[in-house]
Design a protein around this nucleic acid. Structure first.
Length: 488
RNA sequence: GCUCCUGUAGUGUAGCGGCCAAUCAUGAAGCCCUCUCGAGGCUUCGACACGGGUUCAAAUCCCGUCGGGAGCACCA
């Protein structure tokens, strides 16, 4: 019997996002709708990539819509930062909309809803109103005549109410079994100045109002959002139904739990202010800018989210998986160099001059070599950790140079590579002509050390420090090298 | 409390009633290779939450239990 028949064929799996429903090729309109409270973080990249992938697949238009309807939570720089982040991610934006420029539109539609008897202006105490809702009871304002509602509405827009004194409310179904969808606020009063419109407006739309109106007006055909918006979708659908608008296809992906990462923009902002973080790109945060700084490629992030799909199950984000994908991308392009953290000096005796060479990349010899000449006092540095090993094992190999026996100074012990087979360790080293280097680690600490000077000719900013891991170079001068650790 | 979403290996994912003694990636372990703790090659580990149904046949359909998550904001 032919045993090869028993071997199962290995299937390559192609990762593809699920097809969208009701697609008209070339006519798909989708949006990314960030609140400009800070730059994007890794969690935001999912919806960005998904939308971008679908528009690339079907053709159409991707709109970025800044949802700046809460003046108290706006970071004025965020608009610019978010657009930079999206560009870095490779997300192609066709149109940009800013909601704070569209308040009049929201006011008009709210007025129409009041005229239709589908909205009211409520002057009740907020807590009381909420309690009534919980008991499925209409507040006294709910059923006032439309004329009264309109009068109140004019007063609301004109600023005759103070904060908390009045809100415009969309009627849904007070008897709805789901308490989350019963009557929701559409407009509220805020006196806090808006970074873009100042004090021009005091009636601020709530997201369910502005989102529903804009999704319709901008012609959204498909909407992808996190599962946390499920109830908001239900609320927004009331507005669509009242106006008889065609609803987009909605998709809700599951929540992403991102472990060991600071994501909350308000916290990051606070830490920056306190001088604890160096900025929005501080490597201890999960911002897109921090990813970029650490040498994570946008292609890796994209692949990660495509492979994760769009299911509504809650998922656990895995840095290991992302690093694996990133390693796939940068390994071939990253040349190898020796970096020695916490250097310990050794002089070598027993030979006049040492020569050696190492490939820039072991899998790509055509790229050439790093050439080594060590003479004079034959001074080299190895890391404190390796030095400890040297003291213990009495024998070590300086990779691509020579073997050493322990003593002070160290003793040259030939250049027979085969000692590696007998358990001797090959370690990285640098000579006197090495460059002072700071390596920033993901926990914010700095590893000080020396890097071989061949790195000065490196143009690519992702390289691998042998036996340590991949790093991204931020500064590369004969005086100083600054690098950020990417991953192993 | 009410409402909604959801349960396939450590993590993510494929599966859409028979092709499933369940895919792929990542991870972990081992071996080979390599002058890196990288890459590559090979091998191994590891999952259908549970209980009932329906059916000739269930990971796949139905019901229940249990578990995870979200919402019930004058935030987005």
């Amino acid at each position: 019997m032919d045993s090869s028949l028993l071997v199962r064929e290995k299937k390559e799996r192609i990762y593809e996002l699920p097809a969208l429903d009701n697609v008209v090729e070339g006519k798909v309109v989708m949006r990314i709708a960030p609140g400009p409270s800070g730059p994007l973080h890794i969690g935001h990249t999912r919806v960005s990539i998904l939308n971008d992938e679908y528009i690339k697949r079907y053709g159409g238009k991707l709109i970025v819509r800044y949802e700046d309807t809460n003046p108290e939570k706006i970071e004025p720089d965020a608009y610019e930062m978010i657009s930079e982040d999206l560009e870095w991610l490779g997300v192609n934006i066709n149109e940009t909309i800013i909601q704070s420029e569209r308040f009049e539109i929201y006011y008009d539609y709210t007025k129409k809803l009041i005229e239709m008897g589908k909205a009211y202006v409520c002057t009740c105490n907020a807590d009381h109103w909420r309690e009534l809702k919980e008991q499925k009871i209409a507040c006294p304002c709910h059923d006032l005549p439309i004329e009264t509602q309109l009068e109140r509405y004019e007063k609301l827009l004109a600023g005759e109410y103070d904060e908390g004194e009045a809100v415009a409310v969309i009627k849904t179904d007070l008897a709805h079994p789901n308490p989350a969808v019963r009557d929701f606020v559409a407009l509220r009063i805020v006196h806090h100045p808006h970074p873009r419109t100042g004090t021009k407006y005091i009636a601020y739309p709530m997201m369910n109002l502005s989102v529903a109106i804009d999704d319709h007006l901008l012609g959204m055909t498909h909407v992808i959002r996190g599962k946390d918006h499920l109830n908001n979708t239900l609320r927004q659908e009331y507005i669509f139904d009242y106006f008889g608008w065609k609803k987009p296809e909605y998709y809700h992906y599951g929540l992403v739990n991102i472990p060991d990462t600071v994501l909350k923009t308000s916290l990051i902002k606070q830490s920056i202010k306190a001088g604890e973080y160096t900025g929005w790109d501080d490597v201890r945060t999960g911002t897109v800018r921090a990813m970029e700084r650490r040498g994570i490629k946008p292609e890796a992030i994209r692949r990660y989210w495509i492979e994760s799909g769009m299911k509504s199950v809650d998922i656990q984000f895995s840095w290991d998986n992302l690093y694996g994908m990133n390693r796939d991308i940068i390994d071939a392009t990253s040349n190898r160099y020796f970096f020695v953290p916490d250097p310990v000096r050794y002089d070598i005796e027993g030979i006049d001059v040492l020569k050696g060479q190492a490939p820039l990349h072991p899998d790509h010899p055509e790229r050439g070599n790093r050439e080594y000449i060590v003479d004079g006092s034959k001074t080299i540095f190895i890391s404190a950790d390796d030095s400890k090993t040297f003291v213990e094992t009495k024998k070590i190999r300086l990779k691509d140079l020579c073997n050493l026996d322990y003593s002070t100074p160290a003793k040259y012990s030939g250049n027979d590579v085969s000692i590696l087979k007998h358990g001797v360790k090959a370690i990285q080293w640098v000579g006197r002509n090495s460059v002072k280097t700071e390596l920033l680690m993901p926990d914010g600490t700095i590893l000080n050390g020396l890097t071989e000077n061949a790195i000065l000719k490196e143009h690519n900013n992702s390289v691998q420090f042998e036996r340590l891991g991949f790093v991204k170079i931020e500064e590369n001068t004969p005086e100083n090298i600054r690098a950020v650790f990417t991953h192993r």
